[in-house]
Design a protein around this nucleic acid. Structure first.
Lengths: 342, 342
DNA sequence: ATTAGCACTCTCATATTCAGAGTGCTAACT
DNA sequence: AGTTAGCACTCTGAATATGAGAGTGCTAAT
């Protein structure tokens, strides 16, 4: 579908006006906005045409027009002028992110907060998922005679910990043995290689020490799973309450809280390079059909590894939010890459 | 103020009915609920009296009565029959908490989620604040030639980490030196003892190594602050959207997100032993005047160290929620204590 | 192709009405 | 003195009506 230049101008104006005000736009209002030397009647004719094409719709006979879903789509794909962040804002964002603390979760949390503030939307992000990630280090910190905290760091920079309680007292010898096993069998291995089978054969080979060390190995395996799992972070939920577009925000917020569906959405839809936009019913989840999702991957060390996404009503300022999102993914990727290598 | 037994029965019935339905209660409705052999007229007279005493109020002349703030207070202090959790639910909760992972934050996060589910309210909690907490362990994990991740564990079980970038390359010798400094000057010390002055004198005494090690010391100090700061966790915010009592939930959720005021509230109001209840305007924060806050401290190793709180509309089921909260604080305290010593 | 003009439609805010719920008071009763 | 039946009174909230206003689509003229 290719529209005349004038139709495109009108479509864009309707969308931009509706995004700004939330009110249906009539031919007269449009006249002021647009500086085309035509009358409102002509605009009405054009709008009628755009309605017939399914790009605009009317809430009722005598209201103005609002964008239809495919209207937004046309706009996002062809009409929109991206509105870059001003440089000083960029610097401000960088400053805030650099104080985050360096761990992926910490960085994403900060990034999510910043993005939520800029966009007035909810922001979700997934921790880096690196298929080649391996266990980098395992540390045991004694808490009591029979409890230790185990800390695991993966090569992707993810740090996880768990407290483990053993049946018998943990002396230096046992801890030594555990460290030996770890460095022989686990360091440099991926999480999937830490199978229950391996754990069991190792436990068996330990003889009398088995009783004390098995719980540690089980915890190790748990941790390996944890570091591998992508985690979903959510920020700025309450922003969504400001949009009248959501009569029952509860359902939406609950949906966002359940992290599985979104994690799925993001892993299925890889945005190659540019940001992806899913508008309204393009989202297959019932709870998101009134919303748009804009998301984009960040790359750590040149490899796409996680996603940052913005969720808001279909009536969001795509032209402004997409560049903001792109910028954040870029920064997040840079910071994470910097941390991991040099 | 001491009410007659009948007045008390009526007050309790009004409150319980209102809590259950959210509708003002009239004399007729009350008649069915109460099995006192009197007529509705008598009940009306009694209710009029209760209104005069400021325990009940009317939304308008011809609606039923709803509890006034001091009505709730009287109810909570004297009338309420606490409704204990059934044993099987208790077991269920214990099971969920035991899989949490052992770190205070992880435990509190789980506890918050469980409590939010049971209560249909928002739940806040503060991480243990132990004035005697000291630095227990500091660990350095090299990430690149000039970046390390520093992990700090405090004696209260709090684990924090930060990535630190140094100006010069970190060789084994430097790391060794750092560890020596740490064990000599920092292990066993409280966060407040990690002063900037100390850091600076230490840095000066290092001579040529100063340049490389200073950033590490600064990070160490940051981490010490972090482990000492009580952190506020929030769960179940979206539950509050289900109450018609909140016309603008946005303001409330934003208030909860800003953690300072609540942290203050909790540290000023120590609940000695039993749970504390703040009803409506008893909360001095404007944003909470339509809400009630129920909170109680949990004790780690016999010492009150953190708080768990429930936030909902004034019209919440105090009789059920208070025991639930008490139970959760007990469990949380137990688990944390178990982790730290044996 | 564009436009002025106009009848038509639909919403939204406002006003009106009315049944229903619940009260407080009075007077009678135990 | 405490209780109760009865009743007038008040207020809400739902239902209905009304009208201004906004915006459209169509027609006929340019």
């Amino acid at each position: 579908m290719q529209l005349s230049e004038r139709k495109e101008k009108i479509l864009a104006a309707v969308i931009e006006h509706y995004i700004a005000t939330g009110e249906p736009v009539g031919s007269k209002t449009l006249l002021e906005f647009l500086n085309i030397p035509v009358s409102s009647a002509t605009i009405r004719n054009e709008m009628a045409e755009l309605s017939r094409l399914g790009l605009l719709e009317q809430p009722h006979t005598s209201a103005g027009r609002i964008p239809a879903q495919s209207g937004y789509r046309y706009y996002v794909d062809r009409l929109m002028n991206r509105y870059e962040l001003p440089l000083n804002e960029k610097r401000l964002i960088e400053a805030r992110l650099s104080t985050a603390g360096g761990e992926p979760q910490q960085i994403l949390e900060q990034a999510g907060q910043v993005l939520a503030e800029i966009t007035n939307c909810a922001v979700v992000s997934t921790t880096p998922c690196d298929d080649n990630a391996v266990i980098r280090r395992v540390e045991l910190v004694p808490l009591g005679t029979r409890t230790v905290m185990m800390v695991m760091l993966s090569s992707s920079g993810i740090l996880k910990s768990r407290v483990c309680r053993t049946d018998s007292e943990l002396n230096m010898e046992l801890i030594e043995t555990f460290y030996n096993i770890v460095s022989q069998h686990f360091i440099g291995k991926s999480a999937s290689e830490v199978s229950m089978a391996l754990i069991q054969t190792l436990a068996l080979s330990l003889g009398s020490k088995s009783l004390a060390i098995s719980p540690l190995l089980v915890t190790l395996s748990d941790l390996a799973q944890l570091t591998e799992q992508t985690q979903l972070l959510l920020e700025g939920q309450s922003n969504l309450l400001n949009y009248s577009d959501y009569p029952n925000a509860y359902e939406l917020l609950e949906f966002l809280r359940r992290s599985d569906p979104l994690t799925n959405l993001f892993s299925n839809h890889k945005s190659q390079g540019d940001a992806s936009v899913l508008i309204g019913k393009e989202n297959l989840f019932r709870e998101l059909q009134e919303s748009s999702v804009i998301f984009s991957n960040y790359s750590v060390s040149g490899k796409e590894s996680g996603t940052l996404g913005i969720i808001g009503p279909t009536r969001i300022d795509y032209a402004r939010l997409i560049p903001s999102l792109k910028y954040l993914t870029e920064i997040v990727g840079n910071i994470m890459s910097d941390t991991l290598e040099d």
